[in-house]
């Protein structure tokens, strides 16, 4: 099949950027979307044109490195699928495809479709962990975890940190990402000691990184390649309200900086 691509080209962070039109000829239906771009890039290279920069690594939908907008939808038209797992059989002859990077203040564009998502790492640094140093763990079966709790924790822990939720959110909020980690750890007994401190820290960090606020509309859930449910945001809100109510001075002092 033959497709027309309109790709966001931006040389670097300070370049204003623009859409550029490319023709993709003889696209094989069994190709993945990124393989289609690989072929385009090889053609551009041989013509002496700068290939399109995009991030990808594992190409099996788990590392979370890839992702951009295809016709205004994060990761493209197939639900529950990262762009590296999206195959060209989803498209048809003559389709016009608009490719744009994730857009958010917190995710500045580095080049073309590549953005800086280090803000997600900072949210994790603000509390997305259990403070247990190597060597100090009790036996794995010492604390029993009910199967439903473990399953719910796993549902939330499946987040790959790709940023599609932020990209799809009209407010560029990081609520689904933050809520997923908070919920993962809050469901497990091991996560309890730091539960409320964690939510205060992570929520504050998301604000400092200039993510927007959630308006409960559900675009994030719809584009999430791992189908993380909106419930995790409610869970975060619940823990935040409780944590704010019970907040102690020492926590405030620690979090105030």
């Amino acid at each position: 099949m033959n497709l027309t691509l309109h790709i966001w080209r931006q040389k670097n962070a300070s370049d204003p950027g623009r859409m550029v039109r490319y023709e993709a000829k003889n696209v094989n239906a069994d190709m993945s979307f990124l393989e289609m771009l690989d072929v385009l890039n090889e053609e551009l290279t041989l013509k002496g044109e700068d290939p399109v920069a995009f991030d990808s690594d594992c190409r099996e939908g788990i590392c979370g490195m890839c992702g951009f907008m295809i016709n205004g939808v994060a990761h493209g038209p197939q639900r529950g699928t990262t762009v590296c797992q999206l195959h060209m059989r989803r498209f048809k002859e003559g389709d016009q495809l608009h490719l744009e990077p994730w857009r958010a203040r917190a995710f500045p564009v580095i080049k073309d479709l590549v953005v800086d998502r280090s803000a997600f790492d900072r949210i994790i640094q603000a509390g997305g962990f259990i403070s247990v140093s190597t060597g100090s763990a009790p036996d794995g079966n010492a604390i029993l975890v009910p199967k439903p709790a473990a399953d719910l924790a796993m549902d939330a822990a499946a987040c790959i940190g790709c940023g599609a939720c932020v990209a799809a959110c009209p407010n560029a909020a990081a609520a689904l990402f933050t809520g997923a980690k908070i919920t993962h750890l809050a469901k497990l007994p091991q996560g309890q000691p730091e539960r409320y401190q964690r939510v205060l820290g992570m929520v504050a960090q998301a604000r400092q990184d200039l993510f927007g606020s959630c308006t409960n509309i559900g675009e994030c859930e719809a584009v999430c390649p791992k189908a993380i449910p909106l419930d995790v945001i409610a869970g975060m809100n619940r823990d935040f309200i409780k944590a704010s109510w019970e907040r102690r001075e020492e926590v405030i002092e620690k979090g105030a900086g």
Binding site: V132, S136, V145, A150, D151, Q190
Partner: peptide, 22 residues
């Protein structure tokens, strides 16, 4: 054996039996 203990303590959501064991 220590690795499993460490990972459980970190909150790795390993599969569980209904009784709550790994």
């Amino acid at each position: 054996v220590n690795i499993i203990d460490q990972c459980v303590a970190q909150g790795v959501p390993f599969a569980r039996e209904y009784g709550g064991t790994l």
